[in-house]
Design a protein around this nucleic acid. Sequence first.
DNA 1: CATGAATGAGTCTTCATTCAT
DNA 2: TATGAATGAAGACTCATTCAT
Lengths: 194, 194, 194, 194
Amino acid sequence: MNIKEQRRAEIIKAAMKVFGKHGFHKAKIEEIAKVAGIGKGTVYEYFSSKNELFEQMVEYIVITYFDMAKEAMGQHKTARGKLLAFAEHHGSFIAHHINMAENILPSSNFLSEEIKSRILEMKKSIVSLIDSTLEEGVKTKELKTDLNIKVATLSILGAINQNYTIEIFLQKIDPKDIDPTPIIDTIFNGLVNK
Amino acid sequence: MNIKEQRRAEIIKAAMKVFGKHGFHKAKIEEIAKVAGIGKGTVYEYFSSKNELFEQMVEYIVITYFDMAKEAMGQHKTARGKLLAFAEHHGSFIAHHINMAENILPSSNFLSEEIKSRILEMKKSIVSLIDSTLEEGVKTKELKTDLNIKVATLSILGAINQNYTIEIFLQKIDPKDIDPTPIIDTIFNGLVNK
Amino acid sequence: MNIKEQRRAEIIKAAMKVFGKHGFHKAKIEEIAKVAGIGKGTVYEYFSSKNELFEQMVEYIVITYFDMAKEAMGQHKTARGKLLAFAEHHGSFIAHHINMAENILPSSNFLSEEIKSRILEMKKSIVSLIDSTLEEGVKTKELKTDLNIKVATLSILGAINQNYTIEIFLQKIDPKDIDPTPIIDTIFNGLVNK
Amino acid sequence: MNIKEQRRAEIIKAAMKVFGKHGFHKAKIEEIAKVAGIGKGTVYEYFSSKNELFEQMVEYIVITYFDMAKEAMGQHKTARGKLLAFAEHHGSFIAHHINMAENILPSSNFLSEEIKSRILEMKKSIVSLIDSTLEEGVKTKELKTDLNIKVATLSILGAINQNYTIEIFLQKIDPKDIDPTPIIDTIFNGLVNK
DNA sequence: CATGAATGAGTCTTCATTCAT
DNA sequence: TATGAATGAAGACTCATTCAT
C-alpha cells in the first residue's frame, strides 16, 4: 500500500518534469518512465492511460497550490498581510512550474469534464480565499465599506499574476527577489490623484 | 497576386477555427483544408508545413489584437477613457478567440524563436501603450504623481484579463454585457479605507 | 513540326541532366521543366507521363551511344585499331554520363517491356559490332584462328568498361588522359608467361 | 541479445527480397515487415529508418560477397585456379542477387557517405585480392614478368562480370552450368596470333 | 499551345498501449 | 508485480497529373 502510493507519487513527479518540458503531446510515456526509473509498462500499472496520468498530475498540482496558498495566508491577520503572502506564494509557485504554466495548462483540451470541474472547484476556492480575506478587511474597516469585492478579488489575482509572470519569465528575476509590496500597495491605494 | 493573398487569408481563417477547436496537435491539416474548401495539398502550396501555418496564424492574431487595441484607445482622451476602451476591446477579443486563448497560446512550444520574439515585441507594444497612457495621465494630473507606472500597467492588464476571463468563460456572459467601469474604478480608486 | 521536335529534344536534354543528378524517383518533373525553360504542364504536351519521358530519354542515349561507337570504329581497319577507338568512345561516353550510369540505368524497373527489348537489341548490336570486328581480325590472321569469339567479345567489353570506370569515377581522371593501349594490349597479348 | 540479432537478420533477409524486387523507392516498409512476419512498427525497433535498413542491407551483401570470394580463392594455389574459383563465386553470387544487381546498387544515391566509403573499401579489397593473386603468379613465373598488374586485374574483373552477366541474365543459364575456363583462358592466353 | 494552381493518392514514421515472460 | 518487445492506427507531407484560363 505504502509502497504503491510512493511509486505513484514518483511517477507523478516524473510526469511533472516531462510534461512540463514538452507539453502534453510531445511528452513520451517512455521518457516519464525513464525519469521515474521504471519500465514503460509499469506506468500502466498505476495509471490507465497517458490522459489519466496527466489529469492526476494536474489535480496534484492544483491541490498543492491551494494548500500552500491557504497555509501561507493563515499566518497573517490583515488583508494586506494575507495578500502579500499570497503574492509571494504565487510567485514562487509559478517560478517552480514555469513550464507547467506555459505547456500544461493550455493542454486543458485533454482534461476530462470530471477533472475540469474539480480543478474549477479549486480555482473557486482560491477566489473564495481572497474574497473572504477582503470581506474580513471590510469588516475590520481596513478596506472600503463600499468595495466591489468580486471585482477587487479578480483584479488582485490578475495583477499579482501579471506582475510576477513578467518579472519571472521575461526579466528572469528570481521570485524571492521580487517585492510584492508595490503591487499590493498600487492596488490598495489606487491610481487617481485625490 | 490578389487571389493568392486572398486564398492565404482563407486558409488562415480556417486554421483559426480548427487550431482553436482542437489545439495544435489534434488539429489535422486535412480538416483545415476542408474548412477552407480546398484540397489537402493546396495548403502546402501556401504554407510549407503545419508549423509554419500555425506561426503565421499566431502572428496574424497578435497583430490584429494590437491594431484593434490601438485604434480603440485612440478615440479617447483621458487615461480612464482609454483604459475602459482597452478593456472592452480585450473582452470582445478573447470572447471571439476563446479557444485560441485556451488551446493555442499554450502551444507556444511549437513557435520558432523568430516568431516568438516577434510576438514578444507585440506584447511589449501593448505594455508600452498602457504605459504611455498612464504617463500622460500623470502629466495631466489625472493620476498620482508618484505612481509606480510599471506595476500599475501590469496590474491593470492582469486585472482586466482576469475579470473578463472569469465572466466570459465561467459565467458565460457576453462581453458586450460586461461593464468595464467597476474594474477600472476599483483599480483607479484603490481598496483601502481612507 | 520542326519546332515541336526541337522542343521535345530540349526536354530530353533537360531530363538527362535531372534524371542523371537524382535518379528516377527523386527527379521532379517540375525541375526538368525549369531546366528546359518551360512550364510544368508543357512537359505533358510532349510526353504522356514521367515514365514515358524517362523511356524516351533512355532510348535516345542508347541510340546515340551505338551510333557514335559505330562511327568511331569505322575509321579504323585493324581489330586493334577499332577496339582502341571503341574504348576511347566508351570512356568519353561514360564520363559524360557518369550519373546516368550510376543513377539511371539501375532504374530499369521503370522501363516498359517494349523499351527494354529495344535497348536489348541495341546492346546486342554493340556485341555484334565487336563480334564482327574480331571475326574480321581472325580472317586477316591478325587474331588467333581458334579464338572463342563470344567470350573474347564480352571480355573486351567488360575489361574496357571496368578499367575506364575505375579511372574516371575513382581516380577522377579525364577520359581524354586515359590511354586505352595497355588495356587492349593486355587482352590481346594475354597474361601467361610463354 | 541472440534473439535480437536473429530478428535483425530476418528483417535484412526480408529487405533483400523486397528491395530486390522493387528497388528502393517502390519497396514498402509494410511489405518488408509482412515478409519478415512481423508488424510494421517492429522494423523501426531495429532500424531507425528505411534508409538505414537499406544501408545495413547493402553492407551485409558486400561483406558477404567479399568473405565468400576470399574463402573460395583460398582453396587454390595457382593464379589460374584462384581466378577460376573467383569467377564461379561471382557468377553464383550475381545469380542469387539478380535483382539486387539491377535494382539496388543503382539506388546508391541513398547511401550515406559513411556507408559508401565502407563499400568502396570492400571493392578495393576485392581488387587487392586479385592484385596479389597476380603478383604471386608473376613471382612464381606462372605469369609474365612485365605484366601491367593494375590493368590486368580490372580487365579480369570486367571480363568475368560481363561474361557471367550476359549468360545469366540474357541467356538465362544457370551459373553452375557456366564454365569459367574459356573466360580465364581467353584472358590468360590473349587474342593475337603469334 | 502553354501554363501553373489545385489535387489527393500513397508512404514513412511515431508512439500509446498491450501482453507474454 | 515489472518489463519492454511488438503492434498498428493515425497523420504530415510529396509530387505526378489534370484542367481552367
